[in-house]
Design a protein around this nucleic acid. Structure first.
Lengths: 154, 154
DNA sequence: TTGAGTGCAAATCCTTTGCAGGCGG
DNA sequence: CCGCCTGCAAAGGATTTGCACTCAA
């Protein structure tokens, strides 16, 4: 499926739920599809929009992100910072997890089916219906800790 | 070791690092020891203090929490809410993890050495020195979802 | 046409900070 | 007595909200 098909599919999902398709919503969804590997904050998204000629207000950025999280189009991530991060939900993929470097805030994404399976078993044991699972490893990425010039790049 | 011994041990640790032992700091540490199983927010701690006759300011509450986190006396927890939660670090114990009910905000604590071991291996693979690991399962706790009167009690 | 969506600014929530006075070591 | 800690109030960052206007359906 092409990126455009995927965008159309997501827009269709919003339509079915009775949401209107505005250029703002379309643009936000496209930004996430063009930045699949990133974990953007609301401010990040707003800045990308501001630099383009599709600028939308910060308030609408926040409203759109919230709506997309509720629609399960985006996943909200907590990296022990003061703001949240967002990433596209890929329903074909298993949940993935993150290593967060406390020195440079760089994140490494990883998948591990054993962890997912353990999580599902534990939830089952406690009779909890799983909505999302997030395994975060907070640590120090040695390269960065020793070389400040690499900060925020990696 | 009694709770008092433990308090004394923690205070001693602060002393060694050159921090002064004030009644405010002593009280905050005691509150966490009397609420080992809870995951209190700054506001929670402040309220407990306000109801007692050991009231301290909200600013000092925040300053004390930050200091205790830096000292590794407390662990900061992210439950996908707007505020943070805190719990006592027990260095004799393996890291534990949480199930968070999205309906009632109730949290279930669990330990799972397999998960800890997997986390350590993954960190090693990426050459990351682990500072903390948190596995969160977000879901719906069925009992609560069906019976509002149980909210926040369980 | 009409009400959901938007932009703007103000408000809110949580947390941090500047400063003057207080108290632990 | 020195300088770290505190309380207070003000500031700060992230996010939400009220309101009047706009535009998708």
């Amino acid at each position: 499926m092409t990126a455009d098909d995927k965008t159309e599919e997501l827009l269709q999902r919003l339509r079915e739920k009775g949401f209107r398709i505005t250029s703002q919503r379309e643009t936000v969804i496209k930004i996430f599809q063009e930045n699949k590997e990133k974990h953007m904050s609301a401010e990040d998204v707003f800045e990308i929009l501001s630099r383009s000629n599709e600028a939308i207000s910060l308030a609408t950025t926040y409203r759109t992100l919230r709506m997309l999280v509720d629609m399960n189009v985006l996943r909200e991530l907590d990296f022990a910072e003061t703001h949240k991060h967002y990433e596209l939900v890929d329903e074909d993929e298993a949940p993935h997890h993150h290593i967060i470097c406390l020195d440079c805030n760089h994140t490494i994404e990883f998948e591990n089916e054993e962890i997912n399976e353990l999580g599902r078993k534990i939830a089952e044991k406690y009779n909890v219906e799983v909505v999302d699972m997030q395994f975060q490893i907070f640590g120090k990425c040695p390269t960065v800790a020793k070389d400040d010039s690499r900060k925020h790049r990696h």
